[in-house]
Nucleic acid binder design. Structure first.
Length: 286
DNA sequence: CACTCAACCTGCCGGC
DNA sequence: TGCCGGCAGGTTGAGT
């Protein structure tokens, strides 16, 4: 489940159903699911057994559970990863990659991932910074209280690239993927190829406000689910897809001006925008 | 640093 | 019915 709102929905589920519990045993069913855990599956299983989950945290699209050992169980859901809290008796689906049982014998946690782009590992938390090693290179996300708007504005204007490419760069601002990039640009009336160095302060302010607004709304609606791949820990879909203004709406009217939404191929993926509200800049940068 | 491409996977959909 | 290309919410590393 990919972008920030969907990952945050999962984090909240883990907060409610997993934090405070002690892991009894772990089973790994597919080596790719723990490929980032370089010490291997046996080690992964061993360091988790008996550990208590202290919290459920997130930065951007990364999710982690700090443990009483001082390490954290880190998860990235990739394109199709799910963390599900299910009764032990619930049948295993075809894409079950790992299972976590708890000492209280209540519902277990499962990592399910059709495309196996997601992954789990256990790693130390950086002293002082409070994030796992693998999350160090990721910028704070726009819903983080410590996100620095002014610093972001300076940094994005220093880039020599297009604004959508910048939004998708997780080292500049994290949590934004293809859906919310297109939705935020539509709200801010900016074309995806707008050169970042030409953005002025009001435009950057508009852009950040748009990102936050669309993510907050999506969160209230449980995230965006086009199919059963993107679900919360209880397997339920979000319904923000009904509120999308541009993404996936090729040839359908722009909700603001009625012009048919266009689709462009950009960075080898689809970009949706309104030709009238988001005119292509004279000098475009991709 | 900016940028492109390929790779990593499975499954679904539409066209032929 | 079946085969094939295109497409899908992400990240990483190699190469220019």
């Amino acid at each position: 489940m990919p972008e920030l709102p969907e990952v945050e929905v999962v984090r909240r589920g883990l907060q409610r159903f997993v934090v405070g519990r002690t892991i009894a045993s772990v089973q790994v069913y597919h080596p790719r699911a723990i490929r980032r855990h370089l010490a291997g599956a046996d080690h992964f299983v061993a360091v988790l057994a008996g550990r208590r989950v202290l919290a459920a945290r997130r930065r951007g699209k990364y999710l982690w559970l700090p443990l009483d050992s001082g390490n954290a169980l880190l998860a990235h859901l990739g394109m199709s990863g799910q963390l599900l809290v299910l009764a032990d008796a619930a049948p295993d689906g075809p894409h079950l990659r790992a299972r976590f049982r708890f000492t209280d014998g209540a519902a277990e946690l499962r990592f399910v991932d059709q495309r196996t782009f997601g992954g789990l590992d256990v790693e130390p938390l950086l002293p002082g910074e409070d994030v796992p090693v693998s999350v160090r290179h990721i910028a704070r996300d726009p819903l983080d209280a410590l996100f620095d708007d002014a610093a972001f504005g300076t940094a994005i204007r220093r880039r020599q690239t297009g604004v959508k490419r910048a939004l998708l760069d997780q080292t500049l601002v994290s949590g934004i993927g293809n859906i919310y990039a297109d939705e935020a640009l539509w709200r801010a009336r900016l074309h995806f190829a707008r050169p970042t160095e030409t953005l002025n302060r009001p435009e950057i302010g508009r852009l950040l406000s748009a990102v936050r607004a669309v993510m907050t709304l999506a969160l209230e609606q449980g995230g965006t689910s086009f199919d059963s791949l993107y679900v919360n820990v209880n397997g339920e879909s979000g319904y923000f897809d009904r509120s999308l203004s541009a993404y996936g709406r090729r040839d359908r009217p722009c909700p603001r001006c009625g012009t048919p939404i266009r689709r462009d191929v950009f960075m080898n993926r689809s970009s949706f925008s309104c030709p009238r509200c988001q005119p292509r800049p004279r000098r475009a940068r991709y």
